[in-house]
Design a protein around this nucleic acid. Structure first.
Lengths: 193, 193
DNA sequence: GACTGATGTCAACGGTTGTTGGCAAACGCT
DNA sequence: AGCGTTTGCCAACAACCGTTGACATCAGTC
């Protein structure tokens, strides 16, 4: 989604657009939606605030562009089912620390309705889709995906946002050994109730 | 924490103070820290914005007062250990829906450092203390409490903030049957790694 | 009834925000 | 070279924010 749109040749301002988007992701990730000001983002990108408006229309539009995100969930079809949980935790940890878009989305979702909506889309669409392909009853896929999201987002919230000391100190392997069984049960455990 | 402080007799303005605090909790819970304006809070409490400043000093001071919170965790000493998880989930669900202070704290913690700090205090102090009394190895109590917090806060975040449809639709009993085993393992399961 | 302090209202300040329109420079094309 | 378009900067607007100080009103005390 970064290349030139449609069939138009690359525009000269593509570098500026990218710089704005990069600065926006950083600011949104560290400050949240309301505290990240267009002026600060523009200063980081070393351009004028009015350029942000010209290229993204409004602050909401800028956030929508900056929050575009693909979880890049791995295909788990030819993986032994008992390893689903482990692979998912590892994937999310890596994805989370390698791209600040998720942090921006998480911070903003607390106060901005549009961000919450996008978070719902991402986790409902992308995660539910993968869960549904794991062979479980399709009727319970959405529920299982929601439970997985609750633990994954709780992990991210306590580790990266609130930064609870115990959750920050735990290493990736320790986190996996604790949390993977949880996801495993949410994904493949017997349906409850 | 609502009665008159120290040994002074009740002041005539106690009703106003309480009205401000109530309105503040509502606004902080629904809008987060930055979008909840002093003017809006004052309007809800039907008083002048300057009164908020007089009684609470600043917006930060008002939030600090509004975010004062006791988890009221139950004493679990004479309860069969295998029911810890269930009781904790039920307690948190009730606590969460009966007092919007927790929602205010959760929303604000995403963007406001002071709120994040208070959230750390609450979950580190109160929750870790209870976990430590459950007979587990004191050295791992903080870690276990952190893991419990990650699942509890993730539940709250997906259900009350982002409002993921599957998490909103689940009834209390279903949530308990899914999530209680997770807490149970975090609390009393064998130490990992 | 006059005095003192608490309580409440009103108007305004300085600062910041998202957003807009005008104008200069650089570019691409013929 | 000349021209239209793109890219960028500058200044400013209107709105809103937290915060402050002056002034009225009321309760309780001597």
């Amino acid at each position: 989604m970064t290349g030139p749109a449609h069939s138009t040749r690359p525009r000269r301002s593509d570098a500026t657009r990218a710089a704005i988007l990069l600065a926006a992701r950083e600011r949104f990730a560290t400050d949240g939606y309301e505290r990240a000001t267009i002026r600060a983002i523009a200063a980081d990108a070393r351009i004028d605030p009015s350029m942000v408006m010209r290229y993204y229309g409004s602050k909401e539009g800028l956030f929508a562009a900056a929050a575009e995100f693909d979880l890049r969930l791995p295909v788990l079809t030819d993986v032994p089912p008992e390893r689903f949980g482990e692979l998912l935790v590892r994937h999310f940890l890596a994805r989370w620390e390698g791209d600040e878009t998720l942090a921006a989305l998480l911070r903003a979702a607390s106060t901005n309705p549009g961000a919450a909506e996008k978070m719902r889309e991402i986790f409902a669409d992308q995660l539910t889709t993968v869960v549904a392909t794991l062979g479980a009853d399709p009727a319970t896929a959405a529920r299982r995906a929601g439970l997985v999201a609750s633990q994954i987002l709780g992990l991210a919230f306590t580790r990266y946002i609130v930064q609870l000391p115990p959750m920050v100190d735990l290493g990736p392997d320790e986190l996996v050994s604790w949390i993977a069984p949880t996801l495993q049960r949410y994904l493949t455990g017997p349906p409850q109730s």
